[in-house]
Write a protein that binds this DNA or RNA. Structure first.
Lengths: 203, 203, 203, 203
DNA sequence: GCTTAAACGAGACGGTACGTCACGTCTTAGG
DNA sequence: CCTAAGACGTGACGTACCGTCTCGTTTAAGC
């Protein structure tokens, strides 16, 4: 793992993969059971049947263990995730946004992501790892769909797809993370429509 | 303070205002000095020359102390904050966005806001207090300027100003909070232009 | 306790006497059960139903806890300990030496004294406290009996009673502590006879 | 080494003598530098440039490593150590006792002997090895000189030389080990004189 | 001289205990 | 009764070593 290199880089060849998996699994279970804030390194070690040092040896902080446990989960599930492409960018985006909102409302997803964000705010190193490992792939999926739409003439040829993606996710994310407003389908639809007005073919 | 009522409400009449101020000041200083995560109740009490119990008696958690210390600061400074209104909504927004970005880059502002966000993520009660005390007033200022622009015909008559405000702040906030990208003037400008395309008079 | 003053001296007035007794009792029990080397601060705290910090607050090291626990025991038992005085110093000393040997052979006594000696060897401060609190009173009892014998003409008028006491206890103690030889009645008798030849009336 | 046999007895033929020496040397150096209590197997291994297992393979505990390192040192220095024999047992003994006291005051000697005694107290197996390897030879040297004196008529024909040796060393050792009193020449002289009164020719 | 089993250096591992920190509660003494 | 002070039980921290257990890599004996 790249972000780990800065940590210590012990001889990875000798690393016990069984222990690593046990730690990541225990971490996931504990977050689901008691919530991130109450998860302790000691509890993870105990649950995983591992010495504390084995955690401290390979991860610089609780945040990185959580991040890696989450990344491991994602990597398992997905193979090649893609957004739906019906040819109708507006419909597709509205669908995706609603699905994202629902995902956020799922406790199994919500708890660990909130957990990570808590740490990311105060830990730039973790933020970097997070953006690289979790956010970037998600964003890339979105950009791929937007590229397809632009190619199909549904977006202005010079539409800034990066900005577009941020305008779609940013307000949604803020509402969710800071609970500054309800996550309704109307909100999602309004957001998609506004963004398409900004980057549509005639703009 | 509203959010306090749920806590305990001892006899407020007897409350020592000097101690209260000392606590809020100490809290602000400590956050600026060592960062939110490392601020402890014991350190606040010690710095303020106050017993720990005096803090526990009046605030339900560290987050609320921090919130109140920050609210106190804001309330002191501001009287009637308003956005500039030159008549040119695009120029005004670009200016405001740039200023907001600069504010975020100021350590004295950054540290406590990050601090609050850390707590808000996992504490709905605190989030509510935060949104009510800090976010709402800021948003209202923005909405007032947008209303003025709509009235001047620079925005579509049916522009959803709440959504517009969120589309302006959301992407900016996300980049800052999660460090998912650089806060450049170009980013601010592009964001403003896109939002105005979405809600401009012909839309 | 004198030796404690150098440690920290928190406000002793607030000290919880119940906790103190529980700690000393737990310490004694644990030493008897598992031996000094295997007694840990954590085990003492746990057994006493006390926080570790409460031990660290009042004692500078495990050795001092053990010492105080032992002193407390001694102070309870004894009121005015005296050696027997039948008028026959040789008989009395032989009796005392045999009793001391038997005491040393009792696990309940042996374990804690070995414990203390382990620490004393490498801790001058503890050694001082030990000599003052435990050794000195024991020696004084011996010297009192020797004084009586000298007064009765059973010892040379210029007999050095301090040296005499050390010559009685020293070889015995060494055999016991370092297991350099068996603790037999013959050894005790021979030792007493030799010392009396050295300090007897005609010497 | 005899005490080692009970341990494991790997194929000694293959033993790396360089590693053995490096371990013993590192042990001595570390004891001198940081004191016995703070010497760890890991530190010895690291300093000696040796794997931990190489220590555990050949010695049953830290105490035995220290003992052997000390024995090795002694064996190097001495060839045939003997006490001076001027024909005057009192003068010779006083000289030897003073020299012993000075040796005890030398940090290079004091630290490791204290170290060993710490372990001996609680480890009968180590005590046995210690008495056999270090104490017995020293005592035999003393007994040889006493035998010579008895033969020369300076001691009673039936003087118990073992007891005599213990009466000479015991009080001295106790004062030193437990710091129960100062090691002065006067103390040494008084001790020798008393012992000689007890075992002199007319006794 | 080639083979092969050991001893070796290195160091990861599951553990235990360390001494420290901060938590939130409770107790004391003073105004 | 509120307050400053701070002791208390609790529990997690991150570190240090323990003694065991692989890993390749020497290395020296016996074929």
């Amino acid at each position: 793992m790249c972000a780990m290199k800065a940590h210590k880089a012990p001889n990875s060849a000798r690393r016990n993969e069984q222990s690593r998996q046990a730690i990541l699994t225990a971490t996931r279970e504990l977050i689901a059971e008691v919530g991130y804030a109450k998860v302790t390194i000691e509890a993870i070690a105990s649950r995983a049947g591992v010495g504390k040092q084995t955690i401290y040896r390979w991860w610089p902080s609780k945040g990185f263990v959580v991040l890696e446990s989450f990344v491991a989960l994602i990597e398992t599930e997905e193979g090649a995730v893609e957004l739906p492409d019906t040819g109708d960018i507006e419909a597709d985006l509205k669908l995706v946004m609603r699905e994202t909102m629902e995902e956020f409302a799922t406790p199994a997803f919500e708890a660990p992501i909130r957990a990570l964000n808590t740490e990311i705010i105060n830990d730039p190193a973790l933020a970097e790892a997070y953006n690289e490992k979790l956010a970037a792939p998600t964003d890339e999926v979105m950009r791929a769909r937007l590229r397809s739409a632009r190619h199909a003439g549904q977006l202005s040829p010079d539409a800034d797809l990066d900005l577009m993606a941020e305008m779609l996710y940013g307000p949604l994310y803020q509402r969710w993370l800071l609970r500054s407003g309800p996550l309704t389908p109307e909100f999602a639809d309004g957001l998609v429509e506004a963004v398409l007005r900004a980057f549509g073919p005639r703009a």
